[in-house]
């Protein structure tokens, strides 16, 4: 009875409808049999062992589970895993390369943009979605773009500074 999220090697449970899906996760195709009701966030965390994506609420408010779906930020607790079939997603684990942090990750560390770290992956991916569209945002634009993600620790000011730090670095690197 582990049909919900086990990788295809495991036999699905009896009588439970499952679908085989293939999702490109951080550039790598992953094939899994899932029950339709399984939330994408749960597939990532439990099935694919990518625990950097967090779930912080039941109501699509907190944004801790934010990932990039075809390059745009979504709340992965509010998409079914089956819906990601054939699509490409990016999680926090895909931000850094083996040797190098993404400037957003560096920015969060440099500007103390996190305390407990629970909202951080979602914040960073929301920030990446912003910077991918706008490489020179104002403070207000950053605050607006992050307003679907809740943080209880930092008071946001340093998160905003972290994103602006990253934007500056990314602009410098692209020159």
């Amino acid at each position: 009875m582990t049909s919900l999220y086990d990788e295809v090697q495991a036999a699905p449970g009896e009588g439970v409808p499952t679908r085989r899906v293939t999702i490109k996760v951080n550039g790598e195709d992953r094939t899994v049999d899932v029950e339709p009701r399984l939330l994408l966030a749960h597939l990532l965390r439990q099935g694919l062992k990518l625990t950097g994506t967090h779930t912080g609420c039941d109501t699509t408010n907190c944004g801790a589970c934010t990932i990039l779906f075809e390059g745009r930020p979504i709340k992965s607790c509010t998409m079914l895993a089956v819906q990601a079939d054939g699509h490409s997603i990016e999680t926090v684990e895909g931000l850094a390369s083996a040797s190098e942090l993404h400037p957003i990750q560096e920015g969060f560390k440099e500007e103390h943009g996190l305390h407990c770290g629970f909202c951080t992956p979602g914040m960073m991916l929301a920030a990446k979605a912003l910077l991918d569209k706008n490489d020179n945002p104002t403070e207000d634009e950053v605050r607006w773009a992050l307003s679907g993600n809740l943080c209880r620790c930092t008071g946001y000011q340093n998160i905003v500074k972290s994103v602006l730090w990253a934007a500056e670095k990314m602009r410098a690197e692209s020159k």
């Binding site: 965390r45 062992k49 967090h54 926090v92 684990e93 931000l95 850094a96 560390k109 770290g117 960073m124």
Partner: peptide, 16 residues
């Protein structure tokens, strides 16, 4: 931060 910014924190729900 080194672990949190990489999604490598270890919260209770991450433990299996």
């Amino acid at each position: 931060d080194n672990r949190f910014i990489r999604g490598k924190g270890n919260y209770v729900d991450d433990i299996v």
